[in-house]
Design a protein around this nucleic acid. Structure first.
Lengths: 335, 335
DNA sequence: GAGGTTATTGCAAACGTTTGCAATAATTTT
DNA sequence: AAAATTATTGCAAACGTTTGCAATAACCTC
């Protein structure tokens, strides 16, 4: 029970070698004789020895930690509870671990405004992954300018002094809308908040698809918070005020789509017969919903891997660029 | 741009005081004259100074970090993607931050089997919150025995040498089932995996409710992985083989319930008219689904706060017990 | 078997804080 | 105004690693 913590010097004494040798043995330094290395390592295992990372980090000046900052606008309802964001974090966690780094989960509450100071100078992490571009990029820009190794999940088309990884939102919006049109929709509705960088790209794709096509009614745009609740309310409101004056919805996220779907089903408006509906993200619920949701799938697993790779490349002093991840239309029952 | 990192000694020199004084000034040590403290702090702000946490942790022998370990059985499909678990993690994150601790997100992949060694001896964290009791408690028990400050999200009724915080699963199962019966269900079906500690309690409640009641058919139990997909398959299989031989389902989680719901809706079985359905958790989707899902709400926010409080109490050498969190029946359209 | 190489180990310094104790400066008491 | 007290500050050690360099041990070569 809770015996005194073994330090490297103790382990070395047990093995009958110096601390330096023990250190090198544990780190598989090839300069150490095979036999002694084995001996030390076996002893370490036997006594459940673990290095003091605080000391190690101090000495090495690196932490083997990557901080993930959830960067949400204070004035939006889209929260850390958003299933898609959580999925992104979870995938990043896996990717980080696979590179044997650890993940410090953080948010602006803890980190304040000077992320470089807090994480990098403070030696809390070697680099930052920022999830969520937000509407204002000030803090990210600042951290990047101060030299923080950093990579952002967001809209890759945004000009920036830091690399951004994210889906091809424009193409996603375009394909989603083309799909709606192909399925016969003529009166289109966009549901989302074009104030967000990523969503504005989806919106651009939406408009481009409509411009390409002929004989379509003027599309409607409803600006709402990116939550299912806001979508539900918005659709209810629209139906109440103006009746069913649309036959195709491109929702900026699956949660938004599902909120809209609920409002439609409650009024016995058939999806996809009366209204075709396409979402964005491909969260788990898209497939479980009934009707299942046609959506633009974001490959978060691949994105997570690329985010981490790009961050590690920066730690390695390489220069890296923004990158777009291919999206994929998942055609299901709602369209 | 990326100038040399300021260390405390440098800041002290700037302020014209010794390192000790600077240190005390930054830590608001009352022994320091008010004027000098202000001076040092203002200088620190001005130069974006941050303490090197590695050095600080080494000296103080504590990290101000809490590790959260996602503890899932290797052989189950329920994954880190489970929306409910992610919600729990997210709520813990908030609670941890509110106590000005940081959150190290981890899993068995990184931590190996000796959590005490890895996190505590390794000075990666001051304490552990284990999310998910799993089917086997070996690693948790071991860590606790070795003296790791630790608290578990799981089934509080499980006898253990460590505190467990979780919902009153028995009562939840009981109330859910009583509700199904009150709504007229007579042929009940339990959907889940009683091998899990928490779910076995829900199952016990399910059976108790049935035992209390008269004139009910023998209930069915289908053992499945805790995923919507498994539930969907199971219900489909059951309907195909035996037809509709139940009129009430208690699903062990909302994801399971939603999977079941989809299978039912695809065969035009009315929920709640033909089959009443109750889930567990109250994830965001429960409300968005159509029909919306009656469920047993787990108060994850409160639970997170309690988990953190109990952990900090342990760090303070207090002895803490397991604790049950009250659940609440959320009656919606599916029943 | 002496001289030269090479393989293996150990010494000691450094990473940047915090803090007990001693030292000094400021204030009060007599 | 000297002595006694108290309020501030500084010195130096310690936290536990890692690593450049020097030292030793082992092996070759002729």
């Amino acid at each position: 029970m809770a015996q005194k913590k073994l330090k490297l010097a103790d382990l070395a004494k047990l093995a009958g070698v110096s601390t330096s040798t023990a250190s090198r043995a544990l780190n598989n330094n090839p300069v150490i004789k095979h036999a002694t290395r084995e001996h030390v390592q076996q002893l370490a295992k036997q006594h459940n020895f673990s290095l003091n990372t605080a000391a190690s980090r101090l000495r090495l000046q690196k932490t083997k930690v990557i901080a993930v900052v959830i960067n949400l606008d204070a004035n939006t309802e889209q929260s850390i509870d958003d299933p898609f964001l959580l999925k992104v974090v979870s995938d990043i966690n896996q990717a980080v671990n696979r590179q044997s780094y650890e993940l410090l989960l953080s948010n602006s509450y803890m980190a304040g405004d000077d992320w470089h100071g807090y994480f990098i100078d403070g030696r809390r992490a070697d680099g930052l992954i920022v999830v969520g571009q937000g509407k204002h990029q000030g803090r990210i820009e600042l951290a990047a300018k101060l030299g923080a190794p950093l990579v952002v999940w967001g809209d890759p088309k945004t000009p920036s002094n830091y690399p951004i990884v994210g889906s091809d939102n424009y193409l996603g919006g375009l394909q989603a809308t083309e799909h709606l049109i192909a399925k016969g929709a003529t009166k289109l509705l966009f549901l989302g908040d074009p104030g967000h960088a990523e969503i504005s790209e989806r919106f651009r794709g939406f408009n481009a698809a409509i411009a390409q096509s002929r004989a379509l009614a003027q599309p409607q745009t409803i600006k709402i918070d990116i939550t299912s609740h806001a979508a539900y309310d918005a659709i209810n409101h629209l139906l109440r005020e103006q009746g069913l004056n649309f036959d195709g919805i491109f929702a900026c996220s699956d949660m938004v789509a599902l909120g809209a779907l609920k409002a439609l089903k409650e009024r016995y408006i058939s999806v996809p017969n009366d209204v075709r509906l396409v979402g964005f993200d491909d969260i788990a619920m898209a497939d479980v919903s009934h009707p299942s949701l046609t959506t633009i799938k974001q490959n978060t697993q691949l994105a997570a891997k690329i985010l981490v790779d790009k961050l590690l490349a920066q730690l390695n002093n390489e220069v890296v660029d923004s990158q777009e991840i291919a999206i994929e239309l998942c055609c299901r029952q709602s369209s």
